[in-house]
Amino acid sequence: MGTQGHHSSISEDPDLTAGMERGKTLFNFPSYGSMNGNSTGDTCPTCRGTGRIPRGHEDQLVAVIPCNDVRLKPRRTKLYVCISMAVCLLLCCLILFFLFPRSITLTPVSVLSVMVYFTPDTVDMEVTNLINITNNNFVPVQIVEFNVQGLVTDIVVGKTKISNMTAIQSRSQKSYTIRVDLPIEDKGLNTYCKSSSIKIHTLFLELQMTMNISYLSHTEQLSMNTFEYIDCGTNSTIPHPVSR
C-alpha cells in the first residue's frame, strides 16, 4: 500500500512531469549550428538551449539560415550582372561619342570686294572676305576673339580684331564677312598702285587669320593663312575665290 501511494504521488507531481518533458524535448532538439543533430556544436546564444526566447530580448534575435536555403542562391545572378555591365558600357560609349571633341574648321571662301582710296602719301584699301566656320561637335562653340593680319611682300600692312562674333551651334556651319583695312605706306607700292600706265595693279595679299574658341570647358586656337590677289589701282566688287 505504501509503495503504491509513493508512486502515485510522483506521477501526479506537475513540476516533475514538466521537467521530464522539457528534458526529452531538449534531448531531441538538434544543437545550434547542426542540421541533423549528429554533429556537436554550441547552444543557441539567443534562447540558451531552451528553445524559448526570453521576454524583453526580442530585439536581440539571431537568425540561422541553412546553407541550402534558396535565398542564398538567387536565380539569374550572372544574367543581371551582365545586363548591368552592358548598360553601363553603353552609357559610357554614348557619353564619349557625344562629348568627344571634334574638329572646328576655318575655311576662306572668296574675296567679296576691294575698295581703294588714294591719298597723297598712302593707298588705303578695304578688303572684304567671306569665310566659313564649321562646327562638327555636338555642343555649341563660342568664338572668343578673331584676329586678321594682312601682309604684302612680307610687310604687315594692316590688322583687324573682331570680338563680337556669335556662337556657332552644334553640327552647323556659319558664314562671316570680314573686312580688313590695309593702309599701304611704302613709296614703291604707292607708285605702283597709282601708276596710270599700268592697267592691272596686282598685289598678292597674305591674310593670317587666328581664332580663339571656347567649348566643353576648354579653349583652342585655330589659325589659317590665305593668299589672294587684289587690284590696288581701282575698285573691284566682283567676288573671286581665294587659295589656301
Score class of each variant (00 low, 15 high):
residue 28 N to M: 13
residue 55 R to N: 06
residue 203 L to F: 01
residue 202 T to C: 00
residue 87 V to H: 03
residue 75 R to Y: 08
residue 133 I to W: 00
residue 154 D to W: 05
residue 123 V to G: 00
residue 41 G to E: 05
residue 195 S to D: 15
residue 227 F to Q: 10
residue 70 V to A: 14
residue 1 M to G: 14
residue 94 L to C: 15
residue 123 V to H: 01
residue 63 A to K: 09
residue 203 L to A: 00
residue 210 T to K: 15
residue 226 T to N: 14
residue 167 A to K: 12
residue 51 G to M: 04
residue 4 Q to R: 11
residue 89 L to Q: 09
residue 49 G to H: 10
residue 47 C to S: 08
residue 188 G to F: 01
residue 221 Q to F: 01
residue 179 R to T: 15
residue 158 G to L: 02
residue 44 C to K: 03
residue 89 L to C: 15
residue 232 C to I: 00
residue 28 N to W: 09
residue 135 N to M: 03
residue 47 C to R: 12
residue 195 S to R: 06
residue 137 N to S: 07
residue 164 N to I: 01
residue 233 G to S: 06
residue 123 V to K: 00
residue 99 L to F: 15
residue 209 M to E: 06
residue 72 L to C: 08
residue 173 Q to L: 08
residue 111 V to M: 08
residue 208 Q to F: 05
residue 49 G to P: 07
residue 27 F to L: 14
residue 40 T to L: 12
residue 228 E to H: 03
residue 84 S to C: 14
residue 29 F to R: 13
residue 63 A to P: 04
residue 143 I to A: 05
residue 94 L to K: 06
residue 124 D to I: 04
residue 19 G to F: 10
residue 67 C to F: 12
residue 231 D to I: 01
residue 62 V to M: 11
residue 25 T to M: 12
residue 112 L to C: 03
residue 90 L to T: 13
residue 71 R to M: 08
residue 135 N to L: 05
residue 62 V to L: 15
residue 161 K to N: 13
residue 66 P to T: 07
residue 224 M to I: 06
residue 50 T to W: 03
residue 13 D to E: 10
residue 189 L to Q: 00
residue 233 G to R: 04
residue 39 S to C: 02
residue 140 P to E: 01
residue 35 M to N: 08
residue 197 S to E: 11
residue 170 S to L: 13
residue 141 V to N: 03
residue 215 Y to C: 07
residue 228 E to L: 15
residue 141 V to F: 02
residue 99 L to M: 11
residue 38 N to T: 12
residue 223 S to K: 04
residue 231 D to C: 01
residue 146 F to D: 11
residue 214 S to A: 11
residue 64 V to F: 09
residue 106 L to I: 13
residue 1 M to F: 12
residue 148 V to P: 01
residue 240 H to F: 13
residue 97 F to C: 09
residue 96 L to V: 06
residue 152 V to P: 00
residue 136 N to W: 04
residue 232 C to R: 00
residue 48 R to W: 05
residue 83 I to V: 15
residue 53 I to N: 07
residue 136 N to S: 14
residue 99 L to E: 06
residue 144 V to Q: 12
